[in-house]
Structure formats: structure tokens, C-alpha cells
Design a protein around this nucleic acid. Structure first.
Length: 499
RNA sequence: GCCCCCAUCGUCUAGAGGCCUAGGACGCCACCCUUUCAAGGUGGAGAUCACCGGUUCGAAUCCGGUUGGGGGUACCA
């Protein structure tokens, strides 16, 4: 068996897309599962739309997900790795020129002098006549003399590939046998623009051939293009790699996932606090499953079980709710110290937007992990959950402080009594067990339902009706602040509900 | 239009001729637990396996057709 070589070939024309991440993941999984090599190649020939910022974003994003490559280009801070470089297409221009030269010399390709306007006119005519759009082959039969004449006129030439008649067949690893008549390919297609820059279908094949790629694993949107690629591999005299076309990730309306209809940037998910373990796990399960009922799987486990031929054929709608659930599962499985560290940037972000007044120290965050770990669907929810700990005074709606079964007067006396009880208990006994005992006793003594008292205190001290467990929360708040907030809420309710 | 691909609960999926009166998960609804919120537990609603024909003793599973959906069809990637 030959050594597996697969690649992900993103185009740096936008931030890392969920679809690209998924394709990268499946290539990575296949490479790691088979002990093969995972190559990263930048397809940056669309100079107008490519940028270095996007390059960084894509490579950082992939790394952030834990998808490391064995061979890849140099980007800021990273050296080029691998013996098949360079790994960015703009640095491979001479290779394409050489390949173009070979095809031209063998008459497998020919110069085309048609202008964009002429092509456009023809396309319009075909459309009007209800014919399938295809290149008419105007320049295909040109003799050497005719070509020279056109060149002498100063007409620039694109290079077109001569599409041979017949049918191209291949056995797709996920889709099975596929057969396409080359007549359906739209005629002889362009390899190199008139300005000399090579086009995607050409570069991808030249590079996959040069880099000895053995398995092309990519989105189903490339299935129809595959015959063109196979024809080119043959023309270049290279062995045709195996193909595996992955089902598309879909918008809720079942069209190909797009920026317009879905959140597609991996960055955005990360910024909201989706963690890499969950993202990778979720993406792996879009189109693949273990065949068992296990769903929560770490990357190495997925690698061990991955099977390309078990990949689904139907497209999969991206379900954010399910991702959130999985994210919560993974957050709960995180080591507490690790979680604390991952939370810090989100608290910093809260401070930046002014949602909290200060950034807690790491130890402080560690201390509250037990309160938040099983209450975070995403890391970004941390501010909402416990932001009240890190502000001077949380905003307080007096009406909210009064429990449903209580009135203002009861609330005032309840809060005052609680404050006094806690204070007389002293700072030494200020722990969760002590607080619970004290406050339960207090409720019993006044014939209040403990839940009502607790709710009044909860809102008084946090400003919210939904919080982590009360006593632990009070402890996190601290003795002094607990007393102060109780007193403040007491005053607020008293003045808001005159008796 | 033409070419290609696809089709099991709303969503992600299990299922590779009898184990299926179709299993799991998310979401939804109830109940339990409970100081709120989560988490967890239990239960429920939810799929005539797109449709029609065939093959077979037997089909979600195989074959053909229909319908529906998607993708491709550039001097974009």
C-alpha cells in the first residue's frame, strides 16, 4: 500500500469557513488514521481577493482546532515545512508555466484568441437559444499560421485544454461509481488566462500531481469538476488520485452553507466561546458517525475510528443547538484549571465592553469554577452568569427583589433579618454550610418558605433571578459585599414600595 | 436548459433482506431531584423509512421509474 498523502487547499479570500474546517478535518482524520501525510497548500492565485490577514486567520484557525499539518507554507512566525514546496501557488507560477508549455507542445492545449466580449456574446446567444453554455471551439482548429497572424495583431491568448470526446469514469470513495460524458463539460476550458495567470482547475491538478497527492478529499461541490481534473492528470502523464467527495454542510433551507444565511466564520464561533473539542467533535459528526451510539468523542478517538467509506452521502444542515449542547458537554469535561484559563479572555472581553468593572485574577476565576462549569453552554456566557461578582453594584429592579408570594414589607424585613443574622454570625462562619443553616433557621423562625427568602436574597445580591447556588454565590461575593448589597436592596425596596 | 449527486422523526444520525410494531442524540413537552438556573434521571409527542412499480417467502435495505431537493455548468476558488 502506498503512503497516503492528502491536502487541504484553502483560498485566503476570506476568514476560515466552517466548510473549509470540516474538509480540513476529514483530510486530517484520514491522514492520521492511515499514518499518512497531511499537506496544507495555499491557493492564492486570486490575487485581487486574497490577503495575508486571511492567510493568518485560516492557519491560526486550523491550528486552534488542533488540525496540524505535516507540510505547509511559511506564514508570519511559521517556517515552511516539507520537501514538496513551495506551498503557496503564487510561488509556484513557474511550475504552471512549464506544465502549460508541455500541454501546448503536445497539442493537448491551444491558444485561444477569443475576447471576453466575444465569449459573452456567444454565451448570451446560447442562453437565448436554450442551448447549454459551452465554448464553441472557435480557436481549436487554428493553424500555426493563423495563430501567428492573430498574435501579430497583438491579440492576447488564453490557453485552453482540448477536451477529448468520450466518457470519464471514477470510483468515488464515498459516492461510488460516477460516470460523466465529457460533452457535458462545457467545451474546451481555460487553463491559463490571457494575462498569463493560471486558473484553479489547472493549478489544482498540477500541484496535486507534483505533490504526489494520493487522495483528494473535498466538498461535493467539486464532484462535477472532477472529470476535468482527471483529464488533466492524464494529459500531464500523472497517475490519477483517488477521490472522496464529502456531503455539503447546509443552511437551514438546505442550500449550501453560506455567509448570508448562516454564521460561517470559525472565528465567530470561537469568539462566542465554542471550544475546539466541541467544534471538532461536532464537525466530525456532520456526515460521519461511529455506527454506534457514542457521540462525545475526543479527536484522537475520532482519528482511531474514522473511516472514509463510512461517510454519508446526503448533505447535513448545520444545527447550532446541537453544537451548543455538545459544547456544554465538553466544557463540563474540561479540567477546572484549564477552564479557568480559557475563561479569562472572555472576562477580559466583558471588561472591555464595560459589562464588568474589573478583570478577576486567575485564582479568583478558579475559585468560582464549581459554580459555573455545568452552567455554561458557551464560554461567552460567563459574563451573564456571574458578572455581578465583578461589578461595584449590579443594576437592581426593586420589583424583581420581591418574591412572588411576598409583598414589599415582608421583603424588607426578610432582607434586614438576613443581613442581621449573617452579620451576627460573623465573618468566621461565612461559609456555604453555615449560611444555609442560618438562613433556613431564620425562615423557619418567621414562618417563611425558605425558597422565598432565598429568592429575595438572591436577587438583592445579584440583581438576577437565575444564578448559581445561592450560598456558594454569597461566599464568592464575600462577607462585606454581601452585607452591603443586602442593605442596599433593603433600602431600595423600602423606598420603592411605600407602606 | 444540460450534466452530476442525494432522499429514515423539525435537525444530526443508526440501519448494509428477516434482530424494525425503525434505535440513539439535539430540540420540544411532562414529571422527579431541587433555594433559582443549570446539570442529571424518568417518561412522552415526533418518521405511512419521498412516491410508484418490480425482484424476493420476506425490502427502510436490491432494481427501475417518478417527484422533490442540492451541486456544477466562468479568462472565481
Amino acid at each position: 500500500m502506498t503512503h497516503v498523502r492528502v491536502r487541504i487547499a484553502p483560498s485566503p479570500t476570506g476568514p476560515l469557513h466552517i466548510g473549509t474546517a470540516r474538509t480540513a478535518l476529514f483530510n486530517y482524520l484520514y491522514a492520521r488514521h492511515t499514518g499518512g501525510t497531511f499537506v496544507l497548500r495555499l491557493e492564492d492565485t486570486d490575487v485581487a481577493r486574497s490577503s495575508e490577514a486571511f492567510e493568518r486567520d485560516i492557519l491560526d484557525g486550523l491550528h486552534g482546532l488542533g488540525l496540524t499539518w505535516d507540510e505547509g507554507p511559511a506564514v508570519a512566525g511559521l517556517d515552511e515545512r516539507g520537501p514538496y514546496g513551495p506551498y503557496r501557488q503564487m510561488a509556484r507560477l513557474p511550475l504552471y508555466a512549464e506544465a502549460a508549455e508541455r500541454l501546448l507542445a503536445a497539442d493537448l492545449a491551444y491558444p485561444c484568441y477569443c475576447t471576453p466580449q466575444e465569449l459573452e456574446t456567444e454565451r448570451r446567444r446560447q442562453k437565448a437559444a436554450m442551448e447549454p453554455p459551452r465554448y464553441a471551439g472557435t480557436c481549436a482548429p487554428l493553424t500555426r499560421e493563423q495563430r501567428a497572424a492573430r498574435a501579430a495583431e497583438g491579440r492576447p491568448a488564453a490557453l485552453r485544454f482540448r477536451v477529448p470526446p468520450g466518457t470519464v469514469a471514477f470510483d468515488d470513495i464515498v459516492r461510488g461509481h460516477v460516470e460523466i460524458d465529457t460533452a457535458a463539460l462545457g467545451g474546451d476550458f481555460v487553463l491559463v488566462r490571457a494575462d498569463g495567470t493560471p486558473l484553479y482547475h489547472f493549478t489544482v491538478v498540477v500541484d496535486d500531481a507534483a505533490m504526489d497527492i494520493t487522495h483528494v478529499i473535498r466538498g461535493e461541490d467539486h464532484l462535477s469538476n472532477t472529470p476535468k481534473h482527471i483529464l488533466l492528470f492524464r494529459a500531464l502523464g500523472h497517475e490519477v488520485p483517488a477521490f472522496a467527495h464529502l456531503p455539503l454542510i447546509l443552511n437551514p433551507d438546505r442550500t449550501k452553507m453560506s455567509k448570508r444565511k448562516s454564521q460561517t466564520a470559525v472565528d465567530d464561533y470561537v469568539a462566542q466561546g465554542f471550544i475546539r473539542e466541541a467544534l471538532v467533535n461536532y464537525l466530525a459528526l456532520l456526515g460521519w458517525s461511529t455506527g454506534t451510539e457514542e457521540e462525545i468523542l475526543p479527536l484522537d478517538e475520532i482519528v482511531a475510528r474514522f473511516d472514509l467509506s463510512a461517510v454519508n452521502r446526503a448533505g447535513a444542515v448545520f444545527d447550532r443547538d446541537r453544537l451548543e449542547w455538545l459544547n456544554g458537554q465538553w466544557i463540563r469535561r474540561l479540567d477546572p484549571d484549564d477552564l479557568a484559563e480559557r475563561l479569562l479572555p472572555f472576562l477580559e472581553a466583558e471588561a472591555v465592553v464595560g459589562a464588568i468593572d474589573r478583570i478577576p485574577a486567575l485564582d479568583e476565576v478558579r475559585a468560582i469554577i464549581p459554580l459555573v462549569q455545568e452552567r455554561l453552554p458557551v464560554l461567552g456566557a460567563i459574563g451573564d452568569l456571574v458578572g455581578f461578582l465583578f461589578v461595584a453594584e449590579p443594576p437592581l429592579d426593586p420589583a424583581l427583589v420581591i418574591p412572588k408570594r411576598w409583598d414589599g414589607a415582608t421583603t424588607v424585613s426578610g432582607l434586614a433579618a438576613a443581613r442581621d443574622a449573617i452579620e451576627s454570625n460573623g465573618q468566621v462562619a461565612f461559609d456555604a454550610e453555615g449560611l444555609e443553616a442560618t438562613l433556613r433557621a431564620l425562615a423557619a423562625a418567621h414562618d417563611w418558605k425558605a425558597g422565598d427568602l432565598f429568592m429575595a436574597i438572591r436577587v438583592a445580591v445579584t440583581g438576577r433571578t437565575a444564578t448559581p447556588p445561592l450560598f456558594e454565590t454569597l461566599v464568592a461575593l464575600g462577607y462585606e459585599r454581601t452585607l452591603a448589597r443586602l442593605a442596599r436592596a433593603c433600602d431600595l425596596v423600602r423606598s420603592a414600595s411605600p407602606t
